[in-house]
Simulated scan of single mutants.
Amino acid sequence: MHASGTAAVNGPFRTGYRRLVGFGIEVLRGQAQVDFLPSALTGVVFSVALFAAGWEFGLYGLTGTAVGTATARLLGADRDRITAGLEGFNSCLVAVGCAVFLGPHHPSTAVLALTGSAVVTILTGAAARILATWDLPTFTLPFCLTASAMTIAAPGFQRVWHQDAGPATLSRPAAGPTALTVTDLWHAFFANIGQIFFMPQWYVGLIFLLGIFLACRRAGVLACVGSAVGILTAWALGAPAEQVAEGTMGYNAVLAAMALCGVFLVADVWSLAYAVIGAAAATALSPALAALFAPSGGHTFTWPFVLVSLAFLAAAPAFPRLRRVTG
């Protein structure tokens, strides 16, 4: 009787434990999916990187991803997408973006991060249905829409906008020296990867890069290629060395290079060349969008990556040498 009673208690406990562990894995995969990687271990490394930048950013990242994943579960989203972490990466970016642009210590920021993480999950469903018409992925479009709306609207609400919001600033005109020092180069190389999560510290970008290589060496190489292309393009066009070094000019190039070679297009010499062109285009588009959003208080976020990658993927069927990844 005692044994059967214990088994009856342990059964639900084990089931609950397995569900909790499964949910944790989905959350970690959601963080890794910011860089197209369905790896829980990479998600752990990405969390370490965010916590290295500041405990608040690590907490916001995990919480936002968890809220987005939980919202998708509650609304009955496709189970395969949830398991792969595809319902968590946009909410991760929304939450971390709130912390960076609105200040992590304000209660209003926490409320907006939680709300935005849930709302962006709904926008993901809407974007997925619309873009499926052309067989295109959502990328970080739901995040861009949510974050742009929040940052543009924030100054209109006194309980939301704070003058000490954080280190993020509006785009500024090209000014200052353009010559890159050796220090600028290696800082930019790693910062380009960290800035995908809004983190300008080179050592944080290095941790992110290690996490990418841990999941997929090819993805790590493509991230390096994208970072190098972003630096070269920004320098060639005369971007200020300070902006290049802090990674704000090159992070969209990293995402574009990874997306267009190996993730959505079969990796070969043709898609590599296509990805390099896309990475350069995303870099060149960044100042244009910064100037467009600046008067309204918005930011570029990953808009250059989204717009360039959608256009390049939509064009890919016109070029027989480029093959879409299937399955």
Rank of each mutant, 00 (worst) to 15 (best):
G230S: 06
D164G: 09
P104E: 02
E242H: 15
F143V: 07
A113E: 12
P167T: 00
Q33M: 14
P142S: 03
G16L: 06
T233L: 11
L232Y: 08
I130R: 13
H299F: 12
A228L: 10
R159F: 13
G30W: 12
A279W: 01
L131V: 02
W270M: 09
S286C: 08
A174Q: 06
G103Q: 09
L74R: 12
Q31F: 07
V9G: 08
F190S: 11
L214R: 04
A72R: 01
L307D: 09
P173D: 11
V44E: 10
D78Y: 00
V44P: 04
V96N: 07
V269T: 14
A175Y: 13
A66S: 14
Y251F: 15
D78C: 00
L41K: 04
A318H: 15
P317H: 08
L112G: 10
L41H: 01
A179Q: 14
G297K: 15
R218D: 02
F264M: 00
V182E: 15
R159N: 11
T121N: 10
Q163I: 06
V9C: 05
I152K: 09
D78H: 00
P240Y: 12
L307K: 14
V225H: 01
R323K: 07
S108V: 09
M249C: 11
L292T: 05
R129T: 11
A66R: 11
A99D: 01
V100N: 05
H162I: 06
D268M: 09
M1C: 06
R321S: 05
F139G: 00
L131Q: 01
G211F: 05
A257W: 07
G327D: 10
T326Q: 13
G116A: 05
A294L: 04
G116N: 09
A3G: 04
A126V: 15
T169M: 10
F208G: 07
Q201C: 10
T140R: 11
A110Y: 04
I25T: 08
R29G: 00
L20G: 14
I122M: 07
P317K: 07
A314M: 12
A191W: 11
A3R: 15
N10H: 04
G76M: 08
G97Y: 09
A72Q: 01
L214H: 04
